[in-house]
Design a protein around this nucleic acid. Structure first.
Lengths: 112, 112
DNA sequence: TCAACTATACAACAATATTTGAAATATTGA
DNA sequence: TCAATATTTCAAATATTGTTGTATAGTTGA
């Protein structure tokens, strides 16, 4: 995890639409959903959704597999741990005695 | 945690500058740093830093206390847990049997 | 009070992101 | 092969965000 990757992930989640998409895919982990299902569940124009899905895929937040004419998207939950570790790196290194617990987070559904 | 708050937090972390500021404040938790220290450590013009600090404060990612003519900023680490819980809410509710572990994350240095 | 210092507020401009509509690509089934 | 479906791509219009310079407000110590 480097700064560029981290900002890309946060950018991905900084839009209400993309946040909705991600949470929807978390809810439907580990099966995922195809693009059309996401579009109809969130009531979004397919081309707009495609724009956001592309950004999220590029950030590594979701991944995609082809199923015939469908594209199935899945949340990439394992990324979260690396992100939190990056955020809390060197936590309290200026005042170590005040820090009672090392940063730790387990993600739900490591599948896919 | 609601959608608006979550997007604000992610927006805050979606900029390289603000990400640097936050990680710097995490490193200096729980003491924090005054605005001038942050500006000189990150080599930023004070007015630009002020712009970013304001956004982060408004998002609740950091907080500020006055010390004479100085403003001391501290990372608000407890927010992270709420954010992760929001992100992973209803995780795998469509396929519960594939989900092996509930979402859980402990933040470092809950002080302040 | 004054001058020096710390920090924020505002306005203008530049840069970037988002939405929309139309067209293109690819797959499926008749 | 043809029509229908699913999804993406592109370009233009719109909206948002970031940066810079300048001005303002508050604090300190002489």
């Amino acid at each position: 995890m480097d700064k560029l990757h981290a900002t890309k992930i946060f950018e991905s989640l900084a839009s209400g639409i993309r946040l909705d998409v991600f949470r929807l895919l978390v809810k439907h982990a580990p099966t995922g959903l195809v693009a059309g299902e996401i579009a109809s569940l969130l009531e979004l124009p397919p081309n707009n959704l495609s724009f956001h899905l592309k950004a999220m895929t590029h950030a590594g937040l979701i991944n995609v597999t082809q199923e015939g004419r469908y594209q199935r998207y899945r949340a990439q939950l394992t990324l979260m741990q690396a992100l939190i570790d990056y955020l809390t790196a060197e936590c309290c290194s200026a005042d170590p005695e005040s820090c009672f617990e090392p940063n730790k987070a387990s993600s739900c559904c490591d599948a896919v």
